[in-house]
Amino acid sequence: MPGPGLVTRAGALLAVAEPAGAEELLTLVQRIAADGGDGSDLVRRVAELFPAGELSCAVAGPTADGDLAVLVCGHATAEVDGRHEQVRLTGPGPAARVVAGPVTAVQLRLPEAGAPHPLARLDAGVVGAAGLSVRFGAAPQPPDEAPKPFQAVLLVPGFAPPLAPAEPVADTEVLVEGVDCKNGHFNDPALRYCQRCGIAMHQLTLVSRLGPRPPLGVLLLDNGMTLRADADYVVGRDPGRDPDVAAGRARPLRIADSYGGISRRHLRVKLSGWTVRVVDLGSANGTYVQGPGADEAPRVPAGGAVEVRPGAKIIFGRRWLRYESHRNP
């Protein structure tokens, strides 16, 4: 990512830093890479080196368990796509996190970083740049195909032919009715623009089909933890007791509460089609949803479901979750 800064790669270790004062960090990365390249060691040593976040930097490296250790200081930012979650770390820090692997993508950047160039690569060494973007295990992109002739079709509401038998869907995937943009990305029929490539959808004639539902965004917990909105979550002090969690139909999100405001099974974040809803599970102190930009947070009726729009907060006890998504029907 172009910009005023320094980017280094030593083995599997990655680092981005502002130029002033970066020499000691770059030397440390090289030394740890020569000793085996343990990401946990890198994160610990950088935190000791800049205990007050004096240098704007971000570092990342694999651990012995196959996870990824990440740390940010100052004005740097790190974003990681892990096995169960999307993590975003910001300073001033030092803020560190170990993200469960396998990790599919990492982005480390300074505030001035520009867009990544698809042809730029760094096998090793140090270059002048303000950020880096890495995708692991990505297959090479096929060459552009010749444009296909225009074929007019009608959008028939409710018509969704099943997937072909040659394309089996895993039991954990949820099938929803959606449409493809002209680049083949599966989308919510209500979207005006493709959620992946940004191409206009409202000017196309589209036909709906059934397909695996992509993640609908992320859930950001008040402590900075980020969870991918690709399945239901049961939230509470002891969500493992929920029958749907035990049956694998929902994931548990255990929330510590020292004030007694959260029930054992407090609420459920439920994905219904392309919509995110919250259901109060009969909690003692209630669940509240504050819409984006709203001053008030109405209570969710016990057992009732309330739609959660992108930017809205789900408040329970003294804790909250915020639903974030680029989807904007």
Rank of each mutant, 00 (worst) to 15 (best):
I315Q: 01
E48M: 10
A12K: 07
S56C: 12
R83D: 12
V174T: 15
A124D: 15
V98M: 04
P118G: 02
L119D: 15
V207D: 02
A256N: 11
G311M: 06
I199A: 12
G260A: 13
V179I: 15
L42T: 02
G114P: 01
V234W: 00
A190P: 03
V99N: 02
A100S: 10
G291E: 14
A146H: 10
G217A: 03
D232S: 14
L175W: 04
K182V: 12
A170Q: 09
A130L: 08
V126W: 06
D123I: 04
V106K: 02
A69H: 02
V174S: 10
D222N: 14
A95H: 12
L281R: 05
G131P: 00
D144Y: 08
L49H: 00
H266I: 04
T27N: 13
R228W: 00
A12T: 12
A105M: 12
G3E: 14
E145L: 14
L206S: 15
H185R: 06
A250K: 01
A58D: 04
G66E: 06
A312G: 05
R213Q: 10
K270S: 14
W274V: 10
P147E: 13
R241I: 08
R251D: 09
A305C: 07
V245P: 04
T287W: 01
G91S: 09
L14E: 03
P243G: 03
V235S: 12
R196K: 13
A17F: 01
M225W: 05
V98Y: 02
R277M: 10
Q195E: 08
R135K: 13
F316D: 02
D188I: 10
L267T: 10
V300C: 01
P189K: 10
R265E: 15
L28F: 07
L26A: 07
G37W: 07
G21C: 08
V300Y: 00
R135D: 13
D35I: 04
P301G: 14
F159P: 05
W274M: 11
L210R: 15
G3V: 03
G224T: 10
A170I: 01
D295E: 14
N183M: 03
G317C: 03
V106Y: 05
A10L: 05
A250G: 08
A100E: 11
P212G: 08
L271F: 00
G37V: 09
M201V: 02
A284D: 12
V98N: 02
A190W: 03
T27F: 09
S208A: 15
D188G: 11
P147S: 11
Q107A: 15
R309D: 07
A129F: 01
D123C: 14
A22C: 11
